[in-house]
Amino acid sequence: MSKDEIEQKATLSRQEVARWLADLAKAIESGGTMQVSLTGPPVTLELPEEFRCELEVEPHGDTVELEIELTWPRTRARARHDAPTAATLARPE
């Protein structure tokens, strides 16, 4: 993992995951910037008008892994840790 990469892991209830994903969808729909976090300090991202999307489902014995990947080019700014944002997406409480 590079110094710019951030990985966060958390165990959430079904309701918390649904709320977190709904907040993510609203932030993407609104555009501009958003802060995203599960467990640590939020990361600020500038959002594009278009994303490259990838969906991957991997069964692993008794578990299933679902990966949703959104990719977009860096344009004006890189991920920042303390900039003002239009939307904040944090772990549901």
Rank of each mutant, 00 (worst) to 15 (best):
H60F: 15
G32T: 06
A10C: 05
L12I: 05
G32I: 05
I6W: 07
R14P: 00
H81G: 05
V43W: 02
E16L: 00
L21E: 08
S37N: 04
L47P: 02
T85N: 10
E58F: 07
S2R: 12
E56N: 14
A86Q: 13
D23A: 14
T85A: 15
T75H: 14
R91I: 00
L21R: 03
L89W: 02
I68V: 14
A79K: 04
R14F: 09
P84K: 09
P92M: 04
A86T: 13
E16C: 00
E67N: 10
G32N: 08
E58W: 03
D62G: 10
P41Q: 12
T33H: 05
E58G: 01
A90R: 03
F51I: 07
A90Y: 00
T71R: 15
A77N: 15
E46D: 14
T44R: 06
T33M: 07
G61C: 11
L24C: 04
S30Q: 13
A77F: 15
I6M: 08
R14N: 05
Q8S: 04
S13A: 10
I6H: 10
E50W: 02
V36D: 01
I28L: 13
E69Q: 08
A22C: 01
E29C: 01
L24I: 00
T39C: 04
L21K: 03
R74T: 12
K9F: 02
K3N: 11
T88W: 07
E58S: 13
E16H: 05
S2P: 06
M1H: 11
L47K: 04
R14S: 09
D62P: 10
V64G: 01
A18E: 15
L47Q: 07
P48S: 05
A79S: 13
H60S: 14
P48R: 03
L70C: 10
A79P: 15
R76G: 14
A25T: 09
L24W: 06
D82K: 06
R52T: 13
G32L: 09
W72P: 01
L66E: 09
P73I: 09
E56V: 12
K26E: 14
D82G: 07
P48H: 03
L24T: 06
M34C: 15
A27D: 04
P92N: 06
R19D: 06
R14T: 10
K3A: 11
A27T: 03
V36T: 08
C53L: 15
P41W: 02
E7D: 05
R19K: 12
A10H: 03
A86Y: 05
D23C: 07
P42T: 05
A22R: 11
P73F: 10
R52I: 12
R78L: 15
F51K: 00
P84N: 10
Q35F: 01
L70V: 05
L24Q: 02
K9W: 03
A90D: 02
L66W: 12
R76T: 15
E49R: 06
E5I: 00
S2E: 14
L12S: 01
S37E: 02
L70Q: 13
L66P: 00
A18C: 07
E46K: 11
L70I: 06
E65H: 11
E58N: 12
K9D: 05
P73Y: 09
H60W: 13
I28T: 00
C53H: 09
M1S: 12
T71S: 12
A87D: 13
P42I: 01
E16W: 01
